[in-house]
Nucleic acid binder design. Structure first.
Length: 84
DNA sequence: GTTGAGCGTT
């Protein structure tokens, strides 16, 4: 299993690679992705990062929430369920 | 060549 983290208020120019690079120093990132518009492929301004360690995930949230990336103040928290 | 609240698409 892995812990899913929500990252909001991203700049439209921030991509998945940048997300992974941001979280990588705080733990092992199993996957990172910026959610894009299905039709245009443009960023929707938020994304998700999966961490292999729940503990590292929470530390990453604490360390990165509110920090600045690409001119935007990041809103980071545990992700909600994708589907029900 | 745009925009700004948000918890997702293969």
């Amino acid at each position: 299993m892995s812990t899913n983290v929500y990252v909001g208020n991203l700049s439209f120019s921030t991509d998945s690679a940048a997300l992974r690079a941001l979280f990588a120093p705080h733990g092992e990132v199993s996957s990172a992705q910026v959610v894009q518009d299905r039709e245009t492929g443009r960023s929707r301004g938020f994304g998700f990062v999966e961490m292999t360690s729940a503990d590292e995930a929470q530390q990453a949230i604490a360390a990165l929430n509110g920090t600045n990336l690409d001119g935007r103040q990041l809103t980071i928290s545990l992700a909600r369920a994708r589907a029900k």
